[in-house]
Design a protein around this nucleic acid. Structure first.
Length: 871
RNA sequence: GCCCGCGUGGUGGAAUUGGUAGACACGAGGGACUUAAAAUCCCUUUCCUGUAUCAGGAGUGCCGGUUCGAGCCCGGCCGCGGGCACCA
């Protein structure tokens, strides 16, 4: 009986050997010589304190790529660090009285120990945490360069204000419009804040998406939608009569549907529009309406879901196309100040939101687009849903019509297509001087101010005389004070007795530091450049862009867009040499690891480990109480539905954990974590070990050659190597693992073939060890050593595939009759279609299916299929 | 609400991208070995019908379409998930 493989003994041993050999340190450009570079990066983790299986999956994937690239001869950079600023550290400080920095660095130490156990091929020599003063000092320097370049400015914008706690809340801290701690109804409040001019790059950020051919299509689409380029008309509606003082020009609006101008029913301006603010000063009802609109959170979902309400200002504007007609001016909460001009004209017949609003407030609805295409064809004469087309009256509409069509009720524009109508409308408005065509983006400038302690201080000083003065470069970093208190709500930097007091670098008078810190998305927007090199611009240029970036889909828009902005801004201030501004040439977005959520009766979330499933019921282990099993969701700290990989590593080893998270689901898809299957992975590990054990004890006796058996073994090994190779390159790790399963099963069977195939088995096993390395690196080392091979398999080259062993000279084709498989036929690969057709028609199994029918057509797809069409 | 995905056996999933649906694995059932257990090995395992190592039919969330041929393409629904600018 062969000895079992013990990962608890073997894994630490191999990791120590790797560390001593300094195997995973990236070579300098000079050391690397002719070897091509590969920068493999996974999104660095937030140091929550514990790894969860989502991390294991993410980093195992990156490690497969990094180890594969290394075996293929690349000079690989595969670094790791910590996205260490953020709210959880402050929450811990408030809840447990521990300093955010202390908490964070303790978490980093704990997680790093867990990381080491995974056997990842990481270059730890470049490690940093974003809360290291060294790192954030550099970030402050970048901020000042951006400021100098005009990419940074201040303006008023809205925050979620908790009136009880007197503090700003993050969107996730607003639950159903109320503060998470106080339960008070959250108000929107204006605050002057810092912004990055990301919109400066809007067009380029959009255009370059097309060049990112190794990005998932869906991510590019999401980014394109987020940037939201739209072409439309910006125009002025002039007052009918006198307008309010200071607003002489009328109301400036933006629309993407200028073709529907004849159907304009009313003007709607944002509650935050200067006009609304002005009118509210003398109209208490309007002021009350504005206050009502300011209730609830600032998130887009909150705003969109809020009931649509409006207030008639009593003002009227002239219809630009219909002399004598006037339109009322309303304030409406569905019009956002941040988009376009903060004012629209509403055409209720062809916009659902406008439609609902018009119905609610009994405003006119005039259809101006006659449906064409599918919608019109489907509608019969008796279809009441389209009565409005015949009558031309909006009174008969049950919903807005937004499909294709031609104009109606539009005077001389009648019968124009929508596109032609848009052009004519823009021309008409520019001819009369009321407006012009305009490109508008949905993308807004990036608000980077946070009223929090645990973030990168914004390095400016407010001087009563000089205004805003940058902190001189020599004084960087502006360090966070250590002696802070979280007793009071709000920003501890404001409450600190001394920290903000300073002198103006320009005039020397008393001045105050900026107390806002930077959004933590800043930290993760350039860390990849810091990994490439902290100081050496040439080395940065060598490594960048990242060749393969791996992370969760949840970052598809914000993080990736901000990083793309940063690399452009850094390029434009001379901090990085990236001509096209793109930081990640290859991107893979892995699916999330999900898990059921558990909630106790008192509302506490419970970790899976605290819950025991008994049949259909779930019981809290500690109390025996019934637990509510919630929906399967993304693993998150807040819902506590995370799984600690340490237990699995302790019981089965890191290789088993790595194998398991990669084996079943395709990497891009979500995977629901279940304990089941880990044993299977562990068993498989022993099965592999058994193969190598068996080979290490050569059987005695005479050797009878078994050429046929040996050839089959060799073919399988070379085909499997090829399959694993392409599967890794295409991010189909689960397919690679399936190929390895097949391979191992075949090698296991080959043990029965006797000593005549020993050489073939040895070759196959040596290739297997190398193909296994990216997935189960510790086991692969042990297997490699068992074979008596030189050196470390982690440093070995990928096995060479002999092309001659991959080709088959025959192929088995399915034979269909009328699309149903009735037989199969094995033919030479070189067979010409006419021969194949004749052979197929002669098959006896086909007789019953062809009887009484005439063969109309025979489709022969060489190497694929034969389909006989018979009627 | 808006944007982006996903939906295949008891379970995770495979299917050279329009060409044999269910590879590979988990689980389950049966068997071998064993005093017994563990471990290991072998077999069966989409559903229905029948004359049951065989033959026929159905089948990839639902309804319809294109095609010689659809899990894959198109249209419409249903369900689930992610993102929505202060979670990271």
């Amino acid at each position: 009986m062969s000895e079992r493989y013990d990962p608890q003994v073997a894994e630490p041993k191999w990791r120590e050997i790797w560390a001593k050999a300094d195997l995973f340190r990236a070579l300098s450009p000079q050391e690397a010589g002719d070897a091509p570079k590969a920068y493999v990066l996974e999104m660095f983790p937030y140091p929550s304190g514990r790894l969860h299986v989502g991390h294991v999956r993410n980093y195992a994937m990156g490690d497969v790529v990094a180890r594969h690239k290394k075996a293929k001869g690349y000079n690989v950079l595969h670094p790791m660090g910590w996205d260490a600023f953020g709210m959880p550290a402050e929450n811990a400080a408030m809840e447990r009285g521990v300093h955010p920095g202390e908490w964070t660095y303790a978490n980093i130490a704990a997680m790093k120990a867990q990381f080491h156990k995974l056997g990842l091929s990481l270059d730890w020599s470049r490690e940093f945490a974003t809360c290291d003063p060294d790192y954030y000092g550099e970030q402050q320097r970048l901020f000042l360069k951006f400021l100098e370049k005009g990419l940074v400015y201040r303006k008023a914008s809205k925050v979620n204000w908790d009136p009880v706690d007197q503090t700003v809340l993050a969107n996730e801290q607003v639950i159903d419009g109320r503060g998470w701690r106080s339960g008070a109804v959250v108000e929107q409040r204006d605050l002057t804040q810092w912004f990055f001019r990301i919109t400066e790059y809007a067009q380029d950020l959009l255009d370059k998406l097309e060049t990112l051919d190794r990005w998932p299509e869906k991510v590019s689409t999401m980014q394109a939608n987020w940037i939201g380029r739209s072409e439309g008309l910006q125009m002025r509606f002039e007052w009918a009569g006198d307008g309010p003082a200071g607003f002489d020009g009328g109301v400036e609006i933006f629309t993407t549907r200028p073709d529907t101008l004849h159907g304009a029913s009313f003007i709607a301006v944002s509650p935050d529009h200067p006009l609304t603010q002005h009118l509210a000063q003398s109209d208490p009802d309007l002021a009350a309406f504005r206050a009502q609109c300011a209730q609830g959170g600032t998130s887009e979902a909150d705003i969109e879901k809020a009931e649509k309400i409006g207030y008639d200002t009593g003002l009227r504007v002239a219809h630009p196309l219909r002399p004598g007609e006037t339109l009322p001016v309303w304030t409406a909460n569905f019009v956002l100040m941040g988009y376009g001009t903060g004012a629209i004209f509403a055409c209720p017949a062809h916009d659902q939101r406008d439609f609902e609003f018009a119905r609610k407030y009994a405003l006119p609805i005039l259809p101006v687009v006659r449906p064409t295409g599918a919608a019109a064809e489907e509608a019969s004469e008796t279809d009441a849903g389209l009565d409005w087309v015949r009558t031309g009256s909006g009174a008969h509409m049950s919903e807005a019509y937004t499909g294709p069509g031609t104009l109606m009720n539009s005077g001389s524009w009648d019968d124009l297509s929508i596109d032609a109508g848009k052009k004519v409308a823009i021309k008409a408005m520019s001819d009369c001087g009321l407006g012009a065509g305009k490109v508008n983006f949905r993308l807004r400038d990036w608000g980077v101010s946070r009223q929090r302690y645990w973030g990168c201080p914004i390095p400016v000083i407010h001087c009563p005389d000089c205004g805003i003065v940058p902190v001189p470069e020599g004084d960087l970093p502006v360090r966070l004070p250590d002696d802070v208190s979280f007793d009071k709500p709000g920003n501890p930097l404001v409450h600190h007795p001394r920290w903000k007091s300073t002198t103006c670098p320009s005039c020397g008078h008393d001045a105050e530091r900026e107390t806002d810190t930077l959004d933590t998305f800043n930290d993760s927007s350039w860390y990849f450049a810091r990994f490439a090199s902290a100081t050496d611009m040439e080395e940065r240029a060598y490594w960048l862009p990242v060749d393969q970036y791996v992370g969760g889909v949840e970052h598809a828009v914000l993080h990736l867009l901000y990083a793309r902005f940063f690399s452009r801004a850094m390029r434009d201030v001379g901090e990085v040499d990236l001509p096209d501004g793109e930081p990640f040439s290859g991107l893979f977005t892995q699916g999330m690891v999900t898990h059921a959520t558990f909630k106790a009766a008192d509302g506490r979330w419970l970790q899976p480990a605290e819950v025991e499933i008994r049949g259909a019921a779930a019981i809290e282990k500690a109390t025996g109480a019934t637990v509510e099993v919630g929906p399967v969701e993304k693993m998150s700290k807040s819902k506590k539905n995370t799984v600690d990989p340490d237990a699995i590593i302790a019981a089965y080893g890191a290789d088993t954990a790595r194998w398991f998270v990669l084996s079943d689901s395709p990497p891009e898809r979500d995977v629901e974590w279940t304990q089941a299957g880990v044993e299977g992975a562990a068993r498989f590990m022993q099965r592999i070990w058994g193969l190598f054990e068996a080979l290490s004890h050569p059987a005695g006796g005479p050797v009878a050659e078994n050429d046929a058996g040996a050839l089959e073994i060799r073919r399988a090994a070379h085909k499997a190597t090829q399959a694993v190779d392409t599967a890794i390159e295409e991010f189909r790790f689960n397919s690679a693992i399936a190929a390895i399963h097949d391979w191992v099963n075949q090698l296991k069977k080959a043990e029965q073939l006797g000593p005549g195939v020993r050489d073939a088995r040895l070759e196959s096993a040596s290739m297997l060890a190398r193909c296994l390395t990216p997935f189960m690196p510790h086991l692969a080392e042990a297997c490699w050593a068992k074979l008596g091979q030189e050196g470390l398999v982690s440093a070995a080259a990928w096995p060479e595939v002999e092309p001659a062993l991959l080709v088959e000279d025959t192929v088995t084709l399915p034979i269909q009759v009328n699309g149903k498989r009735r037989s199969e036929l094995t033919v030479s690969k070189a067979a010409v279609p006419t021969e194949v057709e004749a052979a197929a028609l002669a098959l006896p199994e086909l007789k019953p299916h062809l009887e009484g029918k005439a063969v109309k057509k025979v489709i022969v797809v060489p190497g694929r299929i034969v389909n006989i069409v018979a009627v």
